Amino acid sequence: MKSKFRHIALLGKYQLPTAGGTKPSSRLILEKVAQFLHTQGCEVILEHDTAANTGLTGYPVMDVEGIGRSCDLALVVGGDGTMLGYGRQLAQYNVPLIGINQGRLGFITDIPLEDFQTTLKAMIHGEYEEDKRVMMHAKVWRDGHCVFDALALNDVVVNRGATTGMVEMRVEVDGHFVANQRADGLIIATPTGSTAYALSAGGPLMHPSLPAWVMVPIAPHTLSNRPIVLPDTGEVVIDLVAGRDASANFDMQSLASLLLGDRITVTRSKHYARFLHPRGWNYFDTLRKKLHWNEGVA
């Protein structure tokens, strides 16, 4: 049977062997995956930084833009953080992504590394479930000018400085004043990001099919200041009123330093991240497995 995906990009994290050799290096893993794809009749293309940092050779190399324009599948080897980074970059090209989990939790990189061949073989021959995830488009405005522009798949987080007290933020939703928030920070999370920082701060789990996001204060001064679920069709505006050395983080992978008076706007991106999961995958199985529900239940 021929592979449904002819041109497959291979992207990964750059992990060295662990002390004592308990985990193989990323190069060995990526090489094994590339060889397997070759046996399935696929043309393998290495992402530029992946090739440069691992020293893997013998395959064509492209940057992310080239992959987006030329490949019909991106295979990401790493953890959720690796997938978040590449998911944001490839979303504008509508390239689907499959994740082989080399990290810990693996909410969106869900193929176990130990036996990837069996699962991956079925998927590249068309046996998979497709899962489209909404993304955020965030901007930082200063004196009427956009000084930072980023996409986020998980969350947009305004944080206080490392050595200072709380920040104060004025929050609007669709032009309606919501509240002045005094807290260590504020999280605006997509359903995908509801299992990340927002969950640690007391936010709810949200099914990825929901057209919504959640606003979660971090250690709020007022205990009645609780998480709230919002429709993702409008605009959330956060004005920094008080607090020093504050920053805005996007998926915790890109950062903008904030000044008093800065405004952060968050809207739904026109792009989606497309994840492919093994046949039979469902969100509740993932939650049960990753959050260790029902352990110890007879």
Score class of each variant (00 low, 15 high):
Lys4Cys: 08
Phe5Ser: 08
Ala19Gln: 14
Gly20Gln: 07
Thr22Tyr: 09
Pro24Thr: 11
Ile29Val: 15
Glu31Tyr: 03
Ala34Trp: 04
Leu37Phe: 11
Leu37Ser: 08
Gln40Cys: 11
Leu46Ile: 12
Gly58Ile: 08
Gly58Cys: 06
Gly66Val: 09
Cys71Ile: 04
Cys71Pro: 03
Asp80Tyr: 05
Gln89Asn: 08
Gln89Glu: 14
Leu97Cys: 06
Ile98Thr: 08
Gly99Ser: 02
Gly99His: 07
Arg104Ile: 04
Asp115Ser: 13
Gln117His: 14
Leu120Lys: 10
Ala122Glu: 15
Glu129Ile: 05
Lys132Ser: 12
Met135Phe: 05
Met136Ala: 08
Val140Gly: 11
Cys146Gly: 04
Val147Cys: 05
Ala150Asn: 14
Leu151Asn: 13
Leu153Arg: 03
Val157Trp: 06
Gly161Met: 07
Thr164Met: 03
Gly165Leu: 01
Met166Thr: 15
Met166Gly: 03
Arg170Val: 03
Val171Trp: 03
Val173His: 13
Phe177Met: 10
Gln181Ala: 07
Arg182Phe: 07
Asp184Arg: 01
Pro191Glu: 04
Ala198Ser: 15
Ser200Gln: 02
Ser200Asp: 00
Ala201Trp: 00
Ala201Gly: 00
Pro208Phe: 00
Trp213Asn: 12
Pro217Gly: 05
Pro217Gln: 08
Ile218Asn: 02
Ala219Arg: 05
Asn225Lys: 00
Arg226Pro: 01
Arg226Asn: 06
Leu230Arg: 04
Gly234Arg: 09
Asp245Trp: 05
Asp245Glu: 14
Asp251Arg: 09
Leu255Asp: 00
Ile264Arg: 01
Ser269Tyr: 10
Lys270Thr: 15
His271Ser: 13
Tyr272Asp: 12
Leu276Gly: 04
Lys289Arg: 10
Lys290Val: 11
Lys290His: 10
Asn294Glu: 14
Val297Gln: 15
Ala298Asp: 14
